[in-house]
Design a protein around this nucleic acid. Structure first.
Lengths: 232, 232
DNA sequence: TAATAAAAAAACAAGCCTGATGGTTTTGGA
DNA sequence: TCCAAAACCATCAGGCTTGTTTTTTTATTA
């Protein structure tokens, strides 16, 4: 559960774009096929990012993974960076959606926030940072540290993501009213999860990650209870 | 204090190898000069890793940064990977040393472990992950995820580092006897610091990092006190 | 001082990646 | 049926990187 299958599909919306061709003479076949190719390319690019890293994600390999010729790909995306740009937007949306799905139904608005709910949300956060979409995006973020052009593209998206991410958290925990405490907890969770996810070489990684999650759950519950007392 | 100067020297042992040439006709000049060139190359490589990232750290650029011709460099290191290998060993030692220096004199063996000591150690851990050596090494670690050859080289070193790192922590906190609690705290600190350090694009990064450090200090002190009660 | 070995520099060949060009097939409408 | 546009494909030149080879410089030692 803690590991990530390398062959996994990144998104799941139009999963196998090239598997079943739409019937001929159908209205708008061209547009549909074009969209499928586009999606196939974006998925292939994500897969390359995950398996090969940003530097080794060449246009030829993306096209190959997407079962598309390089020429066809250049028709949709005139340059490598334009593919990357599209991938960034694609992942932006996908990651928010996946996080919302993972966090759905955790905090019941009718019941007091329980430790069990917090435990669930911590586990969901852990699953979240092990999603292919997270890994692919992280690869881009890491590369952007030393790639000015990429940075210019990803920076505004990342800032927007952080904002929307935090808003989602606030929606997920309607009980948690003290904003300061919620934001601090959010940072604790996210930084911890990220730190663990990016320590892919650590010994006994999963056992340690589990221990940390247990600790974190207790910590969060405590912060929450204190925030309740403080606001009374 | 939280930011990293790009032009900073990585190590500090033989800082400016090319600045002052050893006097001529001195016994073993050649060997000494050779060692200096070697060190200059390693420092240059680290600087390239920090400024340009692993993928863009080419042999030509390393040589250029070290004020050495590519041919001269190839004389010391016959291939790019051999430079990287040397850098890994260099950073292995350097990072352990720097961490020990940062953590020196934190836990006074004669006095009960205080919250102030814990605060200091948390701040030191934060400084640690902002050191150039950490950033350079992290660049290698990240690249190794998708670079099999690099992974083969860095994996044993990384495992050894983790072991020695933990041992150092145990030496730094002689008061902290309950090993389980100490290891859990160590993981909390390290994963958190890493997560924050690698979120170089976050908004209000420093303020949030400070808040997290404050929280973390309280958490650790609590874990420590509980471990004391538990072992009585 | 002269020979020898080490170090440094310069030039070279092979491979890969990108972006561009020109040509071919498919589609939707005239 | 035929045509224009979109989608797709194959090939090529230019630039960059690596590792090798060749040449020059420098230091040790006999």
């Amino acid at each position: 559960m803690d590991t990530v299958d390398a062959k996994v599909e990144v998104g799941d919306a139009p999963a196998k774009p090239r598997a079943s061709r739409p019937k001929r003479n159908e209205k708008g076949w061209q547009a549909e096929k074009s969209a499928m190719t586009r999606t196939a390319i974006l998925n292939a690019a994500c897969q390359c990012l995950i398996e090969l890293g940003y530097a080794n994600t060449t246009t030829a390999l993306i096209a190959s993974h997407a079962n598309v010729s390089r020429g066809a790909m250049m028709h949709h995306f005139p340059s490598r960076m334009s593919v990357i740009k599209a991938v960034i937007d694609y992942l932006h949306e996908l990651r928010l959606r996946e996080y919302q799905e993972l966090m759905a139904d955790i905090d019941d608005p009718n019941v007091k926030l329980s430790k069990e709910s917090i435990r669930k949300s911590v586990d969901s956060a852990w699953r979240y940072v092990n999603l292919p979409s997270f890994i692919a995006y992280q690869e881009l973020l890491m590369a952007s540290r030393t790639d000015a052009e990429l940075k210019k593209v990803i920076e505004p998206v990342e800032k927007d993501f952080e904002k929307q991410f935090l808003n989602t958290v606030k929606l997920v925990f309607p009980h948690w009213e003290k904003v300061e405490a919620l934001e601090a907890s959010h940072d604790l969770v996210q930084f911890l999860m990220k730190g663990m996810a990016l320590s892919h070489m650590s010994v006994r990684k999963n056992a340690r990650a589990k221990r940390v999650r247990t600790h974190l759950t207790n910590i969060l519950y405590q912060i929450y209870e204190e925030s309740l007392r403080g606001s009374e």
